[in-house]
């Protein structure tokens, strides 16, 4: 938009405002990002790759991928189901349901972890029963997955609900009246219509699933090589003053963040997909 009111001094103002914004963004966003990579290579490339290939780091990477591979698809299924129910039908209490779906965004990650400890932990309500049947949830993979699903719960649904509501139900009704089955209609009509929004939600959901720290840290128990995800491994290395290794693992997560931003921007620029709202 170049329609600046051509008042005297407008150029000066413009340069000053742009300059101030650029300094702020550089200081608060760019410098921390660059610092991750500089610190990661502070002890040379050899230390960097050694930190990434040691067994504990590898098992942390594997665990992070596994947790995301379980929780992201589950949230995709939930997101599609929720968006279908909310956007294609009318029922009382719709806005309350949407608020409930959004709820995990306003819960502190630490509290998200705590609620599962209170339910499934040794002191929790179901703790004794679980112990009797030799089922471990807290300090094990199921706890990590549960906590991750909780914190990423709204991502896909909140991307799809406004998108599907905006598209209405004419396309689906046309397909159905031409004899398509419900599932065919979803697969051939709805899914192509929502693909970019779905991809967008999956991207953000995945970034959070792989990067989650607080919720996962409460339920993990920090067993090295067993229940340590990448962010938790970063914390352990950092607290051991093994800074180069901590930043090396952190740099992988930063690359993931950059990749997420690039793909997200590509969706926005190429396909004109516009993400509604201020939420992550």
């Amino acid at each position: 938009m170049s329609g600046q009111p051509s008042k005297s001094g407008a150029t000066g103002w413009r340069l000053a405002l742009i300059g101030l914004a650029l300094i702020f963004i550089a200081l608060f966003l760019l410098v921390p990002l660059v610092a991750v990579f500089v610190e990661a290579f502070a002890r040379g490339a050899q230390t960097y790759f050694a930190a990434l290939t040691e067994p504990d780091a590898l098992s942390a990477i594997k665990l992070t991928l596994l947790v995301a591979a379980i929780s992201v698809p589950l949230n995709v299924v939930f997101g599609i189901a929720a968006a279908w129910a909310v956007a294609k039908f009318d029922f009382p209490g719709k806005s309350i349901l949407i608020s409930f779906i959004d709820l995990p965004f306003s819960v502190s990650p630490v509290v998200a972890g705590l609620i599962y400890v209170l339910l499934f932990g040794a002191q929790g309500w179901l703790g004794p029963w679980l112990a009797e049947h030799d089922i471990q949830i807290i300090f094990a993979l199921p706890g990590l997955v549960l906590a991750t699903i909780f914190v990423t719960f709204p991502f896909v649904a909140r991307e799809l609900i406004p998108l599907m509501a905006e598209q209405g139900r004419d396309d689906e009704e046309a397909a159905l009246s031409l004899g398509a089955s419900g599932f065919q209609t979803f697969l051939r009509v709805t899914l192509p219509n929502i693909r970019w929004g779905l991809l967008y939600g999956v991207l953000l959901c995945n970034a959070r699933a792989m990067g989650e720290f607080g919720a996962v840290s409460v339920v993990s128990g920090h067993l090295r090589g067993l229940t340590n995800t990448m962010p938790l491994h970063v914390e352990i290395l950092y607290n051991e003053y093994n800074f180069a290794a901590a930043f090396a693992v952190a740099s992988l997560l930063a690359l993931l963040a950059l990749l997420t931003l690039v793909l997200k921007s590509a969706l926005e620029w190429r396909f004109g997909y516009s993400h509604g709202g201020a939420h992550p």
Partner: peptide, 29 residues
């Protein structure tokens, strides 16, 4: 929204970095 300057698109995309960067990484950086 109001001004054009080189690198604007990239910087605008960068604003979402805190949403994408794991909090622990931001913390140690």
């Amino acid at each position: 929204v109001r001004y054009e300057f080189p690198g604007k698109k990239v910087l605008n995309a960068l604003v979402d970095l805190p949403f994408a960067l794991p909090t622990a990484v931001a913390g140690i950086a």
